[in-house]
Computed example of a mutant assay.
Amino acid sequence: MKFKVHKAWNIKFWKTKKTFTYILGLGLFLFVAFNCLTWYWQKFSGALRPFWQTQWENLYYRLGGNEWVIFIIATIVVPGIFFWSINSILMVADITGKPGFITQNHIQLGKNDPVDTTKLRKAIRVGLYNQIFISLPMVMLMLPILKWRGDPFSLSLPTLYRFLLELAFNALLEEIMFYYIHRSFHHPFLYKHIHKWHHEWTAPVGIISMYAHPVDHVITSMIPVLTGPVLLGSHVVSFMTWLTLTVLYGSITHCGYSLFPSTEFHDYHHLKFNECYGVFGFLDLLHGTDKMFRCSRAHKNISESIPELPKKKKKLTDLS
């Protein structure tokens, strides 16, 4: 009996020792890995910083330090060029059906193939109106606010760590604000009088990321994007990058082609209206407002059309 107890104690001791050694070894490995990554990160960011710092200083002095000119170029011209460039490509694909490597990934087959040019021209007019008469004044108003919050034209650029941290914060804040504001605009009264404009397109195209009622554009689109930089007192370069990324992301999520998972996510919102309210889908997962979407994805490949789901399910049944 004593031998069995002693043997059991030995087994328990060695198991404990093995667990302790494993935890200690894992902790040591993570510590070394963290220090190595930190060292490489510092080297990488340190190598990039002088180049971009020089470019920023050259631009600043070339424009004579004129803050309004710098701000307009950074927050209006640069995002505008990216927005209209990508949407020009997408509109060519929508109208002509070419190039094939884009159009072969149509999400809702048989829709916008080709696109209704009358509706498209209306979307372009509304998008231009929102950009010129709403987005531009709101972004211009940001200059005195950013100067009050910090030093947006500092000759010293933010560190790469600070830059990436701001992007992450802005993205998280936009997800939170956009989800709840957007979902509230699906209240019957607000939807009927305001948000229904945007949902005239049950199969969206890239340009309609700007196609919305002016009130909808201000509250749903602009405020969630601008709030983060205001809270952080962002540098104009960080602000420019954030605005450019948001207009590109908005165009991609509305493009109607299965280029990224986020495209199908928002496309499904236009198809079903009461699903997939968020930007990235975190809050939809939390609140269960993506259940139908997740069920539909279980029976299709990423490039398959959403309306074809029943057909896909039937095929699976036949195979079984």
Score class of each variant (00 low, 15 high):
M1E: 14
K4C: 09
V5S: 15
H6G: 06
W9E: 12
W9F: 12
K12S: 15
T16I: 04
G25S: 14
F29T: 05
L30V: 03
F31P: 04
A33V: 11
F34A: 08
C36L: 14
L37E: 14
T38K: 12
W39V: 10
W41F: 11
F44Y: 13
S45R: 06
A47Y: 11
Q53A: 11
W56Y: 15
L59N: 09
Y60A: 11
R62E: 07
G65S: 06
E67W: 05
F71R: 00
A74N: 10
F83P: 01
F83H: 05
F83A: 06
F83L: 03
W84I: 01
S85V: 04
I86F: 14
N87A: 10
M91T: 13
D94G: 08
G97T: 03
I102V: 00
I102N: 00
T103P: 05
T118M: 08
R125F: 12
R125Y: 14
V126S: 09
G127S: 15
L128S: 07
Y129T: 00
N130V: 00
F133I: 00
L136G: 00
M138F: 07
M140S: 10
L141T: 10
G150K: 13
S154Q: 14
S154T: 12
L157H: 13
T159K: 14
T159N: 13
T159A: 14
L160Y: 12
L165H: 04
L165Q: 06
E166A: 10
E166D: 13
N170T: 01
A171Y: 07
L172E: 02
L172I: 05
E174Y: 10
F178Q: 07
Y179E: 06
Y180S: 07
Y180G: 09
R183C: 02
H187A: 00
H187E: 02
H193D: 00
K196Q: 07
W197Y: 13
E200V: 07
W201C: 03
W201P: 03
W201G: 02
W201V: 03
W201Y: 08
T202H: 11
Y211I: 03
D216F: 00
T220V: 09
I223A: 08
T227H: 11
T227G: 08
P229C: 07
P229T: 09
L231A: 09
G233Y: 12
S234L: 09
H235C: 14
V237I: 15
F239A: 13
F239E: 10
M240C: 14
T241K: 06
T241M: 15
W242V: 00
W242G: 05
L243G: 01
L248T: 03
Y249N: 09
C255T: 01
Y257R: 01
Y257W: 05
S258F: 04
L259G: 00
P261C: 12
S262H: 08
T263G: 04
T263C: 02
F265D: 01
H266A: 03
H270R: 01
F273A: 00
N274D: 03
V279N: 08
F280M: 08
G281T: 01
G281S: 07
G281K: 04
D284M: 02
L285A: 15
M292G: 06
R294D: 12
R294Q: 15
A298N: 05
H299M: 02
K300Q: 11
K300V: 07
N301G: 11
S305A: 11
P307I: 01
E308Y: 09
L309T: 01
K314I: 08
K314T: 12
D318W: 14
